[in-house]
Design a protein around this nucleic acid. Sequence first.
DNA 1: ACAATAGTTAACCAGAAGTAGAACTATTGC
DNA 2: GCAATAGTTCTACTTCTGGTTAACTATTGT
Lengths: 111, 111
Amino acid sequence: MVEDQVDRFFEVLADPTRRQVVRLLGEGPQRAGQLAAATGSSSPAMSRHLRILLSAGLVADERGSDDARVRIFRLNPEPVVAVQAWLDQVQAHWRDQLGSFKRHVEQKESS
Amino acid sequence: MVEDQVDRFFEVLADPTRRQVVRLLGEGPQRAGQLAAATGSSSPAMSRHLRILLSAGLVADERGSDDARVRIFRLNPEPVVAVQAWLDQVQAHWRDQLGSFKRHVEQKESS
DNA sequence: ACAATAGTTAACCAGAAGTAGAACTATTGC
DNA sequence: GCAATAGTTCTACTTCTGGTTAACTATTGT
């Protein structure tokens, strides 16, 4: 099921710091230390968040080409696409409802 | 900030049962009892989930017109639209990255 | 008035999740 | 080799969250 990926996505993005990381990585690949500093997290905390983001396939990592100590993270497209599809699906049913619901409300308010 | 709404959205949809409720309500308005039965939750548990969904503005409620005991819930469009916008924004930055990243990878692989 | 139904609220419990601090690994540079 | 840096892992500790049970409110129907 693709639903698993959606489930994992929401589970992972439940944490505000991880959402912030995703937002930051949206602007470009960054090092772990930079992310920790930007979010005001400690190194261990950020390390954990990144491991979780990795396990969910939301980000990918790469060793620094010049300095092998640094780890550079970047976003992974697939999961976001899956969630967008999920939201679109929920909304699709909705739009169908909206017509009848609108009529329902108008009918109610005109009484 | 609109970001607050997005934060709230993820916070609320972190729970699988609440995601299921949203999915169910996507197919049409339903009573609290029906949602409890469909998700295999107890009444108190569902009541809590619905209160949370309400407070986040994700759903709206209505009393049954024939039976005032029942409470009918339906989805609210605005929050989902906000989150879709958020995801679109993240993805937009991305697409810009993809070009340069692709070139970066190709350059690396050709060595 | 009384029993049954729909749902909410409150108190308590158990498990999960995030955090901080200390120790550890690997790499760089002098 | 040694100090410094980048990051990870481990071990508590704390907080948050969701579930259950029991009691309660409101409404319906007889």
